[in-house]
């Protein structure tokens, strides 16, 4: 007897669980040949609200973890993505119609990108903080701290690497994320969420919504409990409105310029540190050097 294939339902990833959209809406995802690939959840603004609640509740644990531990957890994400390589390659080939070698190269680059950021976690305070030379009898230290809940609009330039490249620096800094995946590639994005769910990343640290970024991002940009905004995936003409909404609650906004030829930023380029710095706050501590300089005024 012929076997009937079990079709997979692609759902949202909120607070460590995979629920359907609160609205009950779905949309169809087609491959390059036009045949139905999957039904994906079409997230509503209330899903975004729930995602922010989940991200806020996940923040204390993730921001409070030691940088060393965060690095280990992120490295584990790379391990798990490596083991799901074949699935992701197949999904990329089907949804984008690219050659298998090209899809494999993207997954390899994504795994490497994760390892790159896993290595960053315990170096942030050394690179972006440290002792400041001040004129006065004080010690002055700066230490980077996570910004908080960051809403990310992932670019649709390609299915996996822009998503990984936007989410990982947010996590490396100790923030939690609400990610609105590219509407064209929910299957790859949800598979990446499954990787996160099985790799020691605490519940609520990453929350993934699939659907229309233009519908959801304004609600995240104006949300009072979101601290940062990554607008990489938002078209240039829609960014101003979002930045204006974000200004009401003084959010950190990361809005990289489009490439000179127009279109999306080049996500395959070496990552640099801009994304890491975008969602770090600097705490500076002043402390008197002590009685010696106060009493004697001697050269310190």
């Amino acid at each position: 007897m012929a076997r009937l294939a079990v079709a997979k339902t692609y759902k949202l990833y909120l607070g460590g669980a995979f629920p359907r959209s609160e609205s009950g809406r779905t949309y169809q995802v087609h491959d390059t040949k036009g045949s139905l690939m999957a039904n994906a959840a079409l997230a509503s603004r209330k899903d975004a609200r729930n995602a922010v609640v989940a991200a806020r509740s996940g923040l204390a644990k993730w921001a409070g973890a030691t940088p060393y531990n965060r690095g280990q957890v992120l490295y584990r994400v790379a391990e798990m993505l490596e083991s799901r390589r074949a699935d992701v390659v197949e999904l990329i080939v089907r949804s984008r119609g690219v050659k298998a070698a090209e899809a494999r190269a993207e997954v390899d680059a994504a795994v490497d990108r994760i390892v790159h950021y896993a290595g960053w976690t315990d170096k942030l305070s050394a690179v972006f903080g440290g002792a400041n030379a001040v004129s006065g009898p004080y010690f002055s230290y700066s230490a980077p701290e996570p910004t908080g809940v960051v809403a990310v609009a992932a670019s649709s330039a390609s299915p996996l690497l822009p998503l990984v490249g936007a989410v990982l620096p947010v996590l490396a800094g100790g923030n939690t994320a609400v990610v609105v995946a590219s509407q064209a590639d929910p299957t790859v994005a949800v598979t990446f969420a499954e990787v996160l769910a099985t790799s020691d990343v605490p519940a609520g640290v990453v929350n993934l919504l699939t659907g229309d970024q233009a519908e959801i991002m304004p609600w995240l940009a104006s949300h009072g409990d979101v601290n940062g905004l990554d607008l990489t995936g938002v078209p240039a003409d829609q960014r101003v409105a979002l930045e204006r909404a974000a200004a009401d609650t003084v959010k950190r906004v990361y809005s990289p310029r489009a490439r000179s030829g127009g279109g999306e930023p080049d996500v395959t380029a070496a990552p640099g540190t801009a994304r890491l710095r975008a969602f770090l706050e600097t705490k500076t501590v002043w402390h008197p050097v002590g009685a010696v300089s106060l009493a004697g005024g001697s050269a310190y």
Partner: peptide, 9 residues
């Protein structure tokens, strides 16, 4: 207010 608020408020 037309936008979501947070528990910090």
């Amino acid at each position: 207010q037309g936008h979501y608020s947070g528990p910090r408020y």
